[in-house]
Simulated assay, not measured.
Amino acid sequence: MTLHASRDGGRLVLTQGRLTLREQLPEDALQLAEGKPAALVWIDGVPGDGTVGAATMTVATSRAGIYRPGWGLFAIVRSEDGTAVGGAGFHGPPDRGSVEIGYDLSESARGAGWATEAARALCQWALAQPDVLTVLATTEPGNHASQAVLERVGFVRVADRGELWAYELTSIPV
């Protein structure tokens, strides 16, 4: 499925099938970090805890002066009605050819393929950028749902990072 990248008011917007990923700029991330909806309609009323945590990372990179547009948090939005079902994004800009992703879904959106589609779209976009050779992801050993998402996208498990299982991806399987 074709990934379409566009800009809307300075935001990167990635669209693929039923999914739209809307970049959350630092000012949006600040609202999300406070548990506020940031001008989005959330399936469960507010962003999930993982999305709030990711927003905090985007705010921190902005305050540290290392934020780069396109390399932070995205709202996972249903294209059909504009409802936000979770968050996905990067833990920061690329570093030595690698970038790390994460994702979180609202309770009501789990089990419908949104995390897999969001991770696939993020990886497809990232690996098309000249400064990215590898996409990384980590999970807790007991997080079987997240591990299944990574495996469906094509990630391969590599050496653990401390207590976390680590995965990497260098290309999107066809």
Rank of each mutant, 00 (worst) to 15 (best):
A115S: 03
T56V: 08
A115L: 03
D104C: 11
A112K: 10
V77N: 00
G82N: 08
E107T: 15
F90R: 01
G113R: 08
G89Y: 07
H91V: 05
A55I: 14
A54R: 01
A60N: 13
G48L: 01
V59H: 05
D49A: 10
P69V: 10
I101V: 15
S79H: 12
A118M: 00
Y103K: 06
G86L: 11
G82K: 05
A84N: 00
A115R: 00
G48A: 10
A84L: 03
D81T: 13
A119C: 11
V77T: 11
A119I: 06
T83Q: 12
V52C: 09
P37N: 09
R110I: 07
A115H: 03
A75P: 02
G82T: 01
P47M: 03
W71E: 04
V85W: 04
G92F: 06
V77C: 08
M57N: 03
G86A: 13
G70L: 05
V52P: 07
H91S: 08
G65H: 11
I43L: 14
F74L: 02
I101F: 08
R96Q: 13
R63Q: 15
S108R: 14
T56S: 14
G92W: 10
D49Y: 01
A118Q: 00
P94F: 12
R78C: 04
V41A: 13
G70Q: 02
E100S: 12
